[in-house]
Amino acid sequence: MILSDIYIHAENLCFSYREGNGKEENPALRDFSVEICEGEYVAVLGHNGSGKSTFAKLLNLILTPTSGHLTVGGVEVTREDLSDEEILNLRKNVGMVFQNPDNQLVATVVEQDVAFGPENLGLERAELRRRVDDALERVGMTQYAKHEPHRLSGGQKQRVAIAGVIAMMPKCIIFDESTAMLDPSGRREVLDTIRMLNRDYGMTVLNITHYMNEAAEADRVLVINDGRLLMDGTPDEIFARREELQAVGLEVPQCTELVHRLRGLGIALKGDGISTPDACADLILHAYEKLSK
């Protein structure tokens, strides 16, 4: 791994929320260190309250770490003397899409909402127009440009929110449980958009989720438990550690579970590809062919 390829570098990040009386609660994130490279598709897993959302909010300084160092795009953003301009630049580069699509749309017309971020950057009008049209096209919402957001479906609203972020041309987008409130078809729409942004446009993607099937689509999976980084690896590597995942309240995808149980019955399934249904089907097919010979 070449150092210049690293986009996000976190070192011993700690964060605690403050209670109403000013005292610090139990730390939400402890000694968290991780490196994320440019163009990576990373899924962050963890059950509720594990600190995964806190981690995401630290990356663009919506929350300020209590201690530790964070470098994004070569700029240390945990410096004391960080200027407002550097903060804006950080937020321009690290976009974020939240869980509830309703609570992140600002304007009453789709295209004006997409324009909100670029408007804040103070871009020329022609450039605004170009970026809005481009962003809407990328998420396939061009025909809805003049619509009112509240008349769209959940998946469509979330795609508008994504367009609003990509119109700022970020290097990295964080999806903070962006599919949690959507129905299956809406979730598919959003996941396809995420994958497209990563594969076709080379954006670094962090997808924070508690759906295992979503994590299986990523290049790399981070598992967070109790504010600590518990596991870090490819989906296949992570899902192979089924017992450890279950111990922290996470279930492996159904297809992985199937492979595990078949192995438990003494059926020899050779191979590591256990995180996606297709790979599992291949494994089982191979085993079946061997058995039938």
Binding site: I62, M96, F98, N103, V106, E119, E124, V132
Partner: peptide, 16 residues
């Protein structure tokens, strides 16, 4: 969400 999208008041803001 607005902060994430670089909102910092009306100064230096352009309009579509």
């Amino acid at each position: 969400a607005m902060e994430c999208r670089c909102y910092h008041g009306g100064d230096g803001r352009t309009r579509l």
